[in-house]
């Protein structure tokens, strides 16, 4: 039983890797970006758990800026993904412009909330 599961998992892992290798570079860049921000968020959560939640607004803005960035990047990824049929009408330039706007708003708010 255990063996078969581990085997399955192995196979799954392989197929995942091969499937992911097929994704275009720009999507990979986005993925990297997402991973980076999620990682930053995790570091902050760990830091908060150690130090305590005193400047709570700073913590919140720090973490939410990371999560926000990640979420927006995922949104962008969904939109510029050529395989996604839903957004055929949406040109990637438009999607990116929206993304930039969204990020500007996000970081403006973060700046406001940080101090």
């Amino acid at each position: 039983m255990v063996k078969s599961t581990s085997k399955d998992a192995h196979a799954l892992f392989h197929s995942l890797r091969s499937a992911y290798a097929a994704t275009p570079t720009n999507l990979k860049i986005i993925d990297l970006y997402v991973v980076f921000s999620v990682f930053t968020a995790l570091i902050q959560v760990v830091y908060m758990a150690i130090v305590g939640s005193f400047p709570f607004n700073s913590f919140l803005s720090g973490v939410l800026s990371c999560i926000g960035t990640a979420v927006l990047a995922v949104c962008l990824r969904i939109q510029v993904n050529k395989e996604n049929k839903e957004f055929k009408d949406l040109p990637p330039e438009r999607a990116f412009a929206d993304f930039v706007l969204c990020n500007l708003v996000l970081h403006l708010v973060i700046m406001n909330f940080l101090g």
Partner: peptide, 16 residues
């Protein structure tokens, strides 16, 4: 105590 958070926020911005 909040410097890491500032750092994170600014790194997100530069990251952007």
């Amino acid at each position: 105590a909040a410097y890491p958070y500032y750092g994170a926020a600014f790194s997100m911005m530069t990251g952007f």
